[in-house]
Amino acid sequence: MGKNTTVAVPKKKVNWKIYLKRYWQLYALIALPLIYLFIFRYMPMKNILIAFKEYKLNMKLGDMPWASNHGMKYFIKAFQTPDFIKALRNTLMLNILDLIAGFPAPIIFALILNELCFKRFKKVVQTIAYMPHFLSWVIIYSLSLQLFAPNGGFISELIKASGHEAIPFLGEAKHWVATYVGMGVWQNFGWGSIIYLAAIAGINTELYEAASVDGAGRFKKMWHITLPGIKPTIVVLLIMNLGGIIGGGFERPFAMANPAVMNVAEVIATFVYKVGIKGLKFSLTTAVGLFQSVVGLFFLLTANWISRKLGERGIW
């Protein structure tokens, strides 16, 4: 073995050049995405330094003075800010609920779709289910106002007409969280099911035929063939979702929030916007953003490690 590897090293070098020569078209194609990643993802990383410095409007990054406490001033300050703690708590809570409610939904939907016999009906349902994915959250919030506003919201009026008290879907913490998560599931289950449908399509049909011969019914086939068949896909997506458990977008919580529910609606993204961008506290919020990324990376690595320990394929 050892001998082989020592011989392989110079060979590899030659291989690399040959590959480059032979497949230069492909490398040319990938060059642009790589340049994009480098410029927009890696170059800005130097600005992480702002988290450890006193931000000044009129200075270059290198000239800004270091923050006190060995540059850790803003990390300490973040954890002394009740708003940040609250935003952290809310981010975790909303993302975990999203994961619990939103992760299985596309899988279930894909399984159901897969069982439909009428091709055309299946296509129509699929297309309708995709549509919400293309709506921005501002639009979705307007829709939810039309449906849920206590005065004149369609559903609220229905409830009132049936003689019940209107439910504060948007105005009270618990109900708002349910509406928030529900709207998230509604927006994404159709779109999310695409990847599972693709995975299902890749399962060898002979397995189903063999199971039928053995007398397996629909549910047995689903349980013993379809689900195990898409398990690697599920695991990969779960790992990636766990990586984002402390992250999450800005648009959704920002658009859906109102002053009455800020106690549960303030998440890290909106906190960074309000305090950092609006309040011009760049150092503090860069620290928060860096913290968020590090924790996110930790979750991702841990989930990947556990998955590999359990004998599943990781994402690398």
Binding site: T81, A260, M262
Partner: peptide, 17 residues
């Protein structure tokens, strides 16, 4: 001060409702 105007609006809104 952090986000004082939003906090004030929240305080008023929650108290009224």
């Amino acid at each position: 001060g952090t986000d004082l105007d939003n906090k004030r609006d929240q305080a008023f809104c929650n108290a009224v409702k």
